[in-house]
Write a protein that binds this DNA or RNA. Structure first.
Length: 885
RNA sequence: GGGAGGUUAGCUCAGAGGUAGAGCGCCUGUUUUACACGCAGGAUGUCGGGGGUUCGAUCCCCUCACCUCCCACCA
């Protein structure tokens, strides 16, 4: 059909009723609304049917959907839709996270732009502003998940700061506190001066950094040359309260029992002997001890009862204790101190040195070890059961290789610093009464009276909890825990958790610990840890310009194409590589589906399409039905294994290469033939295959398939709950598969012959199938397929006969062919034949050698040897067909 | 310093102890009336290097090289 623009520029109406290319925007929103309206995302179905439950990894409430989310949520939605079609009672719970540091920082920055300082504003006002920000820009991501097609049960939407979830947090805190698993104490923690808060070990990212190792001479009365200490952080020396040597180090034995004088400050420093801290091999064997600014030094301080002097404050500036350096930034102070030491002749050396510096995951500031009072979770008692759960199989990781990483981390786990000096988050439910008694209480308003002294005046701890403290409760707090709700009973524990491996420790491990502690059950049976999305093999970054915005991609290609691309990119490895080219190809696939449907509708509309289960099936019918069974089995197996790439590829290959390229072309002549019965059967088979293919694909491409489903079946919006094709291996028809595949191979050879000989695409070929062929068992079927072969191959003649003299000969699928082109065709390039002969000769030589190898004949399985024999026979026939050199 | 993973077609990646695969890209032909986001045909790989086990290894083992990532308090 020619397309001519009309006056108004619109395309003319398509006679078939469907445009040639489809516009996803036409139906995506419509289907989503319909599914939602009809309650498809809510768990329904027979109460006896198995359930399938997931909770979403809650994105930041003010965040935007990025390609990593899009990937993870697509995977979850595929699982949810697949299980739903398997008639499970599916529940996938949506929600968002308050994301303490991240959100607070954004709001703080916004305020700063307007010249407003957080501290000047005050805590309450500031928190109001954050809520405002959350109202303005929050939940956008939820709409974006809808665009992606996620079948989340919106009636159960949760936010980590919801009253019920906040209560769960307080309850959990109190439980742990009462059990002695939460304690408060003064320790050296990781402190981010940029964020102004303590952070956990996990939030510190170590980076190799070039620095200097300074060697500084401290005077030691009675020891003429004093002591030379080595440090990468000279500014902390102002807080030194000792120097340490190894008890068995002869080099420094003369320092034993002496006192050193701290340069600049003049403080007397005892020389302590500590075998744990000091490595005799390193540097001078003398270590400065700064208990307030180094975790190891802190431990030494504890062992030797040393005081701790805080010289760097929470803002990263030197404190009053730093004397003349007070108020200086820590790095500036370093410069000045080094300059001064040099001036005084105390700087013995400053050698280039590579150090692992800790940076704040959030702000990228250099993290300071900082002595301060914090809350901690005693983690060992929680880790033990969590390890057991995995060891005993109550929780399994997919891919399995993460198990080991999990154990390694859990075995070396350290107490978790959970207090944050922030305002946005769950405030620690700890209260100090007027008489200084500490009490914890889960009531939002705090305790009524002090249990110790009865005082009614309290000050609440100013800190908030690490965001992950609330996240670890997510799989059950969303269901109302600690209340014994129906949902908790019905849907907890969940089945599958899907998330990136980067939060295995942050979140997954902690959920397992918390789940076991608070509910006695592992929160999920299976954890699918996927790789991180990369674009073209590289991390996405704005400077590289390779960022893919999933929403832009949805606009451009449609949600289904984006989802198919992501599913195809899945792999078991640590990276998920996404490319734009893949999006194009996915969109082409969607268009292909569309067009195949248009064709089918032309054939099916207003016509009977009997159930193909009746007899009278042709070989192509049997073939495609068998391939459908094989594909369905395969797809289910791959989904079971979280191999979304393989599942996508299986449907793609079936739909495009077998159903469209193969079956559709095979039935076209049947459809126009006068044999009405055969045509009707083909229509029935076509409908059956198309419906099943569309159903198979629905979890991956939900919108388009629902649209097509409606056109095919006349049913509106029901595909989402239609039974998923599972595939039955007993319904494979291997004989039909072999025959039709042989025919297709012969077709390819005939077409290739034309190209090879420079004949036109339509040049008639006379073909003979040699009854003496190695695979002659196929001949009866090929005879039945003869008319089709003749039609598709544009043959002028087809006979079962030995090849004529002068025919071009070859062996395909074990059938010896004789092919004859009309006169005048160009001869094939001799060098090409030469090369082909070479390849065959090589393989023949190889196989013959194998078959003459006694060890091979004896040890290789009989089936393999037999296969080799067959192959050799076929090759010899092929070689013979090629003629002499 | 430990640990994990990777190295396969120009690109991005699958893959199994028994003759190497996909998508994209490339070449050739093609308005074969569902689809040019198509159809048909085609080319391309010492499966990182070296050694071992095996009748047979790209797939298992050892080793080397390079890459990625995790974990770790050596000043």
């Amino acid at each position: 059909m020619r397309e001519e623009p009309l006056d108004n520029g619109r395309r003319p109406e398509n006679p078939e009723g469907l445009p040639k290319t489809f516009d996803p925007a036409q139906f995506e929103a419509r289907w989503y609304a319909l599914w939602e309206r009809e309650g498809r995302f809510q768990p329904t179905g027979a109460s006896g049917s198995p359930r399938f439950v997931m909770v979403i990894p809650p994105p930041n409430v003010t965040g935007r959907l990025h390609i990593g989310h899009a990937y993870g949520r697509t995977v979850e939605d595929i699982l949810a839709r697949w299980k739903r079609m398997l008639q499970h009672r599916v529940l996938w719970v949506p929600g968002t996270d308050h994301a303490g540091i991240a959100t607070q920082m954004v709001v703080e920055r916004n305020l700063a732009k307007r010249g407003i300082d957080r501290k000047a504003l005050g805590r309450e006002k500031f928190i109001e502003r954050v809520w405002e920000w959350r109202r303005e820009s929050g939940d956008l991501i939820l709409g974006q998940l809808r665009r992606l097609g996620c079948s989340l049960d919106w009636s159960r939407l949760r936010f980590t700061l919801d009253p019920a979830l906040s209560r769960a947090v307080r309850h959990a805190f109190v439980l742990l506190y009462r059990d002695g698993l939460i304690y408060k104490g003064r320790y050296v923690v990781n402190w981010c001066p940029g964020c102004g808060t303590a952070v956990s070990d996990l939030e510190v990212v170590e980076k190799e950094t070039k620095g200097l190792l300074y060697k500084i001479r401290y005077d030691v009365p009675g020891v003429p040359d004093g002591a030379v200490v080595a440090t990468t952080r000279p500014e902390t020396m102002l807080g030194d309260t000792a120097i340490a040597i190894h008890p068995e180090d002869p080099r420094n034995a003369r320092l034993r029992g002496k006192k050193a004088i701290l340069p600049i400050v003049g403080r007397e420093l005892p020389v302590v002997e500590d075998a744990i801290l000091v490595d005799r091999e390193f540097g001078t064997g003398v270590v400065k001890v700064t208990p307030a600014h180094d975790a190891n030094d802190f431990a030494v301080g504890q062992r030797h009862h040393l005081p701790a002097v805080v010289v760097i404050g929470p803002d990263g500036k030197m404190t009053e204790a730093a004397g003349e350096y007070a108020g200086l930034d820590r790095f500036e102070a370093r410069k000045r101190i080094v300059a001064r030491l040099e001036q005084e002749g105390r700087l013995v050396a400053a050698e280039p040195h590579t150090i692992n510096l800790g940076f704040c995951q959030r702000s990228d500031d250099v993290v300071e070890p900082y002595l301060s009072e914090q809350w901690f979770v005693k983690i060992q008692p929680l880790a033990e059961p969590a390890m057991r759960a995995v060891r005993e199989g109550a929780v399994r990781f997919v891919p399995e290789s993460w198990t080991r990483t999990y154990f390694t981390w859990m075995e070396n786990i350290r107490d978790w610093c959970i207090s944050r000096q922030l305002w946005w988050g769950h405030r620690i439910p700890a209260f100090t009464c007027a008489n200084g008694h500490l009490t914890v209480d889960e009531a939002e308003e705090g305790p009524q009276a002090c249990p110790t002294c009865g005082s009614r005046e309290f000050v609440q701890d100013p800190d908030v909890l690490d965001t992950w403290f609330s996240s670890q409760l997510w799989p059950f707090s969303v269901f109302g825990w600690p209340e014994k709700t129906e949902d908790l009973k019905n849907f907890y524990p969940t089945d599958v958790l899907v998330t990136g491996y980067d939060i295995l420790f942050f979140w997954v491990a902690r959920m397992i610990m918390a789940g076991l502690r608070f509910t006695g059950k592992a929160p999920f049976a299976t954890v699918h840890l996927h790789g991180l999305v990369r674009v073209g093999g590289e991390k996405m970054s704005k400077t590289k310009g390779n960022v893919i915005d999933p929403l832009e991609a949805i606009e451009e290609f449609g949600a289904d194409a984006v989802r198919f691309t992501l599913a195809s990119a899945a792999s078991s490895g640590p990276t998920v590589s996404v490319e734009r080219g893949r999006m194009d190809s996915a969109r082409s696939f969607a268009t292909k589906l569309w067009n195949a449907t248009r064709f089918a509708l032309m054939q099916l509309e207003g016509r009977e399409a009997p159930d193909p289960k009746g007899r009278g099936l042709s070989l192509p019918d049997r073939w495609i039905l068998s391939r459908l069974q094989a594909t369905a089995s395969d797809v289910n197996r791959q989904l079971e294994a979280f191999r979304f790439d393989e599942a996508s590829a299986a449907i793609y290959a079936f739909f495009w290469h077998e159903l469209c390229d193969g079956y559709l072309e095979m039935i076209k002549p049947v459809l126009v033939s006068p044999e009405a019965e055969a045509a009707d059967t083909a229509r029935g088979v076509l409908r059956h295959c198309l419906e099943n293919a569309v159903a198979l694909l629905h979890p991956i491409m939900p919108f388009l398939t629902e649209e097509i489903w409606e056109k095919l079946t006349g049913k509106t919006g029901t595909l989402i709950v239609s039974p998923y094709p599972q595939g039955d291996p007993s319904r494979r028809d291997l004989a039909a598969e072999a025959s039709v595949e042989a025919m297709r191979a012969i077709l390819t050879r005939v077409r290739n012959l034309r190209t090879e000989r420079g004949a036109s695409r339509t040049a008639p070929v006379a073909l003979t199938l040699d009854p003496g062929s190695p695979s002659r068992a196929l001949l009866p079927d090929l005879t039945v397929l003869g008319p089709l072969l003749t039609h598709l191959g544009r043959l002028s003649d087809l006979r079962v006969a030995a090849p004529d003299a002068g025919a071009i000969r070859d062996v395909v699928a074990g059938i010896q062919l004789g092919m004859r082109l009309p006169e005048g065709s160009t001869a094939v390039a001799e060098e090409r034949v030469e090369k082909a002969r070479g390849v065959v000769d090589d393989e023949i030589a190889q196989l013959s050698a194998k078959l003459q190898n006694a060890a091979y004949l004896e040890k290789a399985p009989a089936a393999v040897v037999e296969k080799t024999r067959l192959r050799l026979r076929e090759l010899e026939a092929k070689r013979a067909a090629m003629g002499p050199v």
